[in-house]
Design a protein around this nucleic acid. Structure first.
Lengths: 219, 219
DNA sequence: AATCATTTAAAACAACTGTTTGATACCTAC
DNA sequence: GTAGGTATCAAACAGTTGTTTTAAATGATT
């Protein structure tokens, strides 16, 4: 398995394979995707998969990490990490970033789809994802909420709020099929997505503020 | 495909097949599940699947609707529909019902897993699910939120709140693999699940009340 | 008891899967 | 130019899949 030029010429068979593999695995899942299909679309001989990646699973893992590299190129939550900003604004920034990333079908949709597929039906590669992408984002969100609560909340409450916010966003990814059929207006265009992000932020901010009152007043 | 005795003797091969099929499809998904595996576990000849259900897909659809019948036998949201109760209490009841249904691994876990698998990766059978289970539940939740908002909210806001609440609950199902690794305490036992449901209800109620204020005061 | 449709059984079929093989083309370095 | 490693290819391999076939067993009806 030659290690060579992963970032080099994108026309090389090995790079075409990676790119197409992301698409096909995202579309069909690991099992339903066939190496013959991937190779055909990439204009590469079937043997190339085993030559370059040792096996179908090897290709899958490489495609997964490649998808991460690509997705982080285009969306970043750097602004949400700026601790000099008020936490309310940071929350808006974070939700906006996260929802847009989840729903961006244009050039990152396939990568996102591949990743959330892995979450819904984990293979051995899941731990890589959690360490590389999930934990850092959770940490940022936890920091924001912690500041909103003024450091008054215990760890478990903090985590529950993180889950509440992530859950509202992930709904748009994992239950996309239902959204498409019941609430298509919520993601009809970029403005609608913006409005949905706005709703989640307002909804969550209101809830957190209320928790804040509840924990400080009764004492 | 003989129509006979679906509800009759559970020892008949056709009923054993249905029951086992739910388990196996839930465990492996439609594609990864093999009819040979299902038949072996059900102590039935391989040909039985095609004899009774015409095809593997036929068995899948029957298993899916069978799973619904089973799951609705054990959990009901009747109490949450009682419009004589205060909507706050109804919201608690609904979330409690919904989250418990999603997380109940004991006797309904397989059915729930099969259903959420279908949502994450829809086959042609999805529309059956949406009509039979999703829409009725959304309607109830929408009614509760409508009352909480005192009929002041427009349709789209109502739907967004529905999604916010469902999202928080579904997180525990669709991102279960992540919860298991990052927030295992949140679903450690029955008491923890209860507490998680409590959090979602309080969190959402606070947010809705706040929306309520926001829409009535500025005018 | 004989006839009939229904059900179960074992075996084979045909298609598709990931993978390997062995031969051929390519291209660099001497 | 040629030797030697790298890359590509068509073809075949070995295993699994859903499905079909053919035949035997079953059980009710006449």
């Amino acid at each position: 398995m030659p290690e060579a030029h992963l970032t080099a010429n994108p026309e090389l068979p090995i790079n075409r394979l990676l790119q197409i593999a992301v698409e096909v695995f995202a579309e069909h899942g690991f099992r339903d995707a066939t190496v013959r299909d991937i190779c055909a679309r990439a204009n590469v001989n079937v043997a190339a998969v085993n030559y370059y990646f040792r096996s179908k699973e090897g290709l899958y893992i490489e495609a997964l990490t490649f998808a991460f590299a690509e997705i982080n190129k285009h969306h970043s939550y750097e602004a949400a990490q700026d601790s000099s900003l008020p936490p309310e604004q940071r929350l808006h920034l974070f939700i906006n970033y996260f929802l847009n990333k989840l729903l961006d079908d244009s050039h990152l949709g396939v990568q996102g789809k591949l990743i959330s597929r892995e979450i819904a039906e984990p293979t051995k590669a899941l731990d890589i994802i959690i360490a590389k992408a999930v934990i850092p984002q959770c940490t940022v969100l936890e920091d924001i909420i912690g500041r909103l609560l003024g450091g008054r909340a215990d760890k478990i409450t903090l985590q529950r709020c993180v889950m509440s916010i992530l859950g509202q966003c992930l709904m748009f990814k994992h239950s996309r099929s239902i959204i498409d059929r019941l609430f298509p207006e919520a993601i009809a265009d970029q403005a609608a997505i913006q409005a949905s992000a706005q709703h989640i932020a307002v909804f969550s901010l209101a809830a957190i503020k209320q928790l804040n009152l509840a924990t400080e007043s009764p004492l």
